[in-house]
Nucleic acid binder design. Structure first.
Length: 897
RNA sequence: GGGCGCUUAACUCAGCGGUAGAGUGCCACCUUCACACGGUGGAAGUCGUAGGUUCAAAUCCUACAGCGCCCACCA
């Protein structure tokens, strides 16, 4: 009961996952945006107030790399330019090339709110970033410290755990022996990174490992550097592994670092920012780390310290961005103490305030969140949000502030230096759901659109982005950080958490692969450019393909041949429209829909004939199916439902059926058609077509827009079909009888066509047929729709038989009627016999299955009544069908004799 | 080392407890006045393997095989 302007049922908001400014559009973007656009258009048409917020991400490392590369082609380095000039250069780059991806997006038809486009380094967003940083600091959730982080020597920066990709490679496990001081003994340790021995400050053994009990408290001498270090007992050493003794290098390994803290060991940092050995490496100073490794091994070997080299699979970490081998390195960094944030982020998901689709991502998310570690947010880059922290060069005090401070808060000195580091890019993007809506101010946008309704994104950024948004959103949109509008009360109880989430639902989309299911990658050269694809097949066809292939849980193997099929669909729509316009023009005024209104259903449709009642019923049913599909994010079901309806029912049957009612100028066979009836039929056609366009619009925005405007002769009731109402199912227009009756006629027509094909009747030749139907209602139905049957099955006369036609060779039987084509041509006896034999076999199999079930007491006792009833009914049909087929076969054999 | 997903017609995929589906491709016929990016008809699958649960299994369970993904600080 807050005085919120928001009525959640009428608001639909979502954030476009901001592409990197450096990005180029790929199929993944297109899939993502197609799905979002479908959902957005669908909601907008259903009357929701929609907000789809676009923007781009400054993408720290990626962008910096891009500009560095540009500089290097000019023979320059960023250090030569200096920080300020370099940043200016990046902005310049951004102004030039930064918008490319959004321009590409426009061609996909994405109906985002372009006028609200943001960039993550815009002034207002940057201000919010500083605000968040300061508040986290004030909440005691940000700390600075010297810890082991993943260090990328190429980027010259720390990166987070998530930004390290692990790769298994064949390597070696080296065993090195360290002489025990004051004894002839050696202790042998194993390592995959021998160069780090230069920084060893202990050797650890397990306390319970009796092999080493006698060495407890002794010292060893590190070969090559001749430093004496203690033998310590620590859990770190596991007796089963290697020799059971492990070297401890606190400055270059996270486990060793922890052990070092436990035993108060010195930390010897061996490398510089670019992973070259520093002065601590003694004789090896100046060497690259891998060169140093070779030299160390060589020297160890020569001096007899290297005892063994064993083949070993090592997992090496590589920088996600530049693929350099990451070095665990001790350095001063900023971290977020993540546990309190993670706790809330877990709670909101467990309580169902955020729902994942497909559901299994919920567990994946929770597993990750439950094992989360502190997040290193500082990056030693120049491009990004600079950390709002200053150090007093006089008293060394750290000042964290929203605005640049003028003097030290402690000693009043004015000699302050700002922290050179910038923030991890994901820090700012993790804030977007609320900062893009105006946080920390209590804006109307924030009130109306937060929490956003939905997030559609790929699983690859589930942890990078989705998880961070949840943690930060829940923190900063809860009291005391949630801004309160004047007169508004803070939320209470469960509402606090429920309203703090950045989005209510997360839909995780599939990965788009190439036709051979290979991941698309630049190195493989199999990347499909969406712009090229839409150039070839059209945007609508490409969108339709992606929608139709969006089934949950599976990656999409994007095969252009499929798009080819949907281009044909687009073409089909054009041609159906052409047919419609042709008739509209011929029949004249009063047929186009009123430019004064646009309804929510199939409004000015006067169902007169069976096909009218049928198509109206089908349309309403399909509209319901599409609604259900979209509600469940089943883009594939929605696309399929529309496709099948439009092509398979509307074009193949309805249009064919109403053709005789249309008056065509050169129609001499039309006969019974009157002008008035033609107008009526055409109005219905127009009305249904108009509704179909609205049904189809979210998936195929361009073609539907164009035809829709033409339909209103350029004077539509609304500026765009996108603003018209989405078709809603009207129960009144669903007509089961019409559907059943139509199915019988379709069955009859298909049977005749089938017989004609078997008998090889000339296409143009109209033939007489005989029909037998036991049920007078069916006989009546056929009688009343004689014209349709004659037309669509190319029949010239229909005779109704009083007796079953079972014995006639070539006749077809269904449960409701027998039909026979009268044609002098000899039937292909062999083919007919094969067909009947096969049919008999199938009938027989099905009958014995059914009978077995019905004679099974267990089945009768346990199966639901309707299932048993269904089988009984089917068995009756089958017996009759089998009998007829058998008679026919007998007749055939007799005839041949 | 943990966790997850996939295996259905030649290809790409739906179906996930009650008689095997679609698109493309294939075969045959047809340029009929919306459409050959079309129409009509047709062929094509013991639903990865082996067990189990059930009256009933492509559908649920177990194991196995193959393919793929994610997470993980064991030298």
């Amino acid at each position: 009961s807050t005085p919120s302007e928001r009525d959640e049922r009428r608001v639909f908001s979502l954030l476009l996952p901001p592409p990197n400014v450096t990005g180029r559009l790929h199929m993944g973007h297109m899939l993502n945006q197609t799905q979002m656009d479908i959902v957005v258009r669908w909601h907008r048409m259903r009357g929701f107030i929609t907000l789809w917020l676009p923007g781009t991400d400054h993408a720290g490392i990626a962008t910096q790399m891009m500009v560095e590369r540009q500089l290097s082609s000019e023979g320059k380095k960023r250090e030569q330019l200096g920080r300020e000039a370099f940043i200016e250069r990046v902005w310049e780059w951004k102004r030039h090339y930064g918008g490319a991806i959004l321009d590409q997006m426009k061609r996909l038809g994405a109906s985002v709110d372009w006028e609200r486009e943001y960039f993550t380094m815009d002034e207002n967003l940057s201000r919010a970033v500083r605000e968040v940083f300061v508040r986290l600091y004030e909440d005691g959730l940000i700390y600075r410290g010297k810890y082991i982080v993943n260090w990328c020597p190429r980027c010259g920066s720390a990166i987070s755990d998530l930004e390290v990709k692990h790769e298994d490679v064949a390597g070696k496990l080296y065993e090195i022996r360290y002489p025990v001081v004051g004894s002839e003994e050696f202790i042998t340790v194993a390592t995959t990174r021998p160069e780090t021995m230069l920084g060893d400050t202990a050797v650890a053994v397990n306390e319970k490992d009796e092999r080493y009990t006698h060495l407890h408290g002794k010292k060893v001498r590190v070969p090559l550097v001749n430093r004496e270090i203690p033998i310590i007992t620590d859990e770190l050493a596991q007796p089963e592994f290697g020799t059971g003794a492990v070297k401890v290098t606190p400055a270059h390994d996270p486990n060793d670092f922890e052990a070092g803290l436990r035993h108060n060991l010195a930390q010897i940092d061996l490398m510089d920012d670019h992973a070259r050995m520093n002065e601590n490496a003694g004789a090896y100073a100046g060497l690259d780390r891998f060169e140093a490794r070779l030299r160390v091994l060589h020297d160890l070997r020569e001096q007899g310290f290297l005892v063994a080299e064993k083949d070993y699979t090592v997992s090496i970490g590589k920088c996600d961005r530049c693929n350099s081998i990451v070095e665990p390195r001790l350095s001063m960094q900023w971290f977020i103490k993540i546990a309190p944030l993670a706790k809330r982020a877990i709670e909101v998901v467990e309580k169902g305030y955020i729902r994942f689709t497909p559901e299994n991502y919920q567990q994946i998310y929770l597993n990750w969140m439950n094992n989360i570690r502190d997040w290193c947010i500082s990056r030693q880059l120049w491009w990004g949000h600079r950390i709002p922290a200053w150090r007093c060069t006089d008293c060394n005090e750290t000042i964290v502030a929203r605005e640049t401070p003028v003097s030290c808060t402690k000693c009043k000195s004015s000699r302050l230096e700002q922290e050179p580091d910038v923030l991890d890019t994901w820090f700012s993007s993790g804030l977007l759901p609320f900062t893009s809506l105006g946080w920390p101010d209590a804006t109307r946008d924030l009130d109306v659109f937060y929490p956003t309704s939905l997030l559609i994104t790929g699983f690859d950024i589930l942890f990078f982005w989705v998880a961070r948004m949840i943690m930060l959103g829940c923190w900063f949109m809860s009291p005391p950080h949630r801004p309160v509008r004047a007169g508004e009360k803070q939320l209470e109880g469960d509402e606090v958490l429920r309203q703090s989430v950045p989005f209510r639902e997360v839909y995780i989309h599939a990965l788009v692969r190439d036709a051979d299911r290979q991941k698309m990658s630049k190195t493989k050269g199999n990347v499909l450019d969406p712009i090229e694809v839409i150039g070839k097949y059209g945007t609508d066809a490409t969108r339709f393909t992606l929608a139709a292939m969006s089934s949950p849980g599976t990656d999409i193997a994007f095969n252009p041949s499929r798009t080819d099929g949907y281009r044909a669909f687009a073409n089909k729509i054009w041609n159906a429209a052409r047919f419609m316009f042709m008739n509209v023009d011929r029949l004249g005024a009063g047929i186009r829909p009123s430019s004064a209104k646009s309804g929510a259903g199939v409004d000015s449709f006067a169902a007169q004939t069976l096909e009218d009642r049928w198509i109206l019923s089908r349309f309403n049913r399909v509209a319901g199916d599409v609604d259900n599909a979209l509600t469940a994010y089943r883009f594939d079901d929605a696309a399929r439902a529309i496709y099948d309806f439009f092509w398979g029912e509307f074009c193949d049957w309805y249009i064919e059926l109403i053709k005789p009612r249309m008056i065509l100028e050169d129609d001499t066979k039309g006969g019974a058609a009157t002008r008035e009836d033609g107008v009526l039929a055409c109005r219905n056609l127009v009305s249904l077509f108009e509704a179909s366009l609205r049904l189809l619009h979210p998936v195929m925005p361009f073609i539907t827009e164009e035809i829709w405007h033409a339909l209103y002769d350029g004077k539509p009731p609304l500026a765009s079909i996108a603003l018209a109402s989405y078709p809603q199912t009207s129960e009144k227009q669903i007509n089961l009888d019409a559907e059943t009756e139509m199915a019988i006629l379709q069955d009859l027509i298909a049977s005749v066509r089938n017989i004609r094909a078997e008998l090889k009747v000339e296409h143009k030749q109209r033939v007489p047929i005989q029909i037998f139907a036991q049920d007078p209602a069916i006989q009546n139905l056929i009688e009343q729709n004689r014209g349709a049957v004659e037309r669509l099955a190319n029949v010239e006369a229909i005779a109704c038989s009083e007796i079953s036609l079972s014995k006639l060779p070539g006749a077809r039987h269904t449960a409701r009627f027998d039909v026979h084509v009268i044609y002098e041509q000899k039937i292909d006896v062999a083919a007919e016999r094969a067909r009947l034999t096969k049919q008999l076999e199938q009938f027989g199999k099905e009958i014995s299955n059914g009978e077995r079930q019905l004679s099974n007491e267990q089945f009768l006792a346990k199966a639901p009544a309707n299932v048993a009833e269904g089988i009984r009914k089917r068995l009756l049909e089958l017996h009759s069908l089998r009998e007829k087929a058998q008679l026919q076969l007998d007749e055939l054999v007799t005839a041949v004799r």
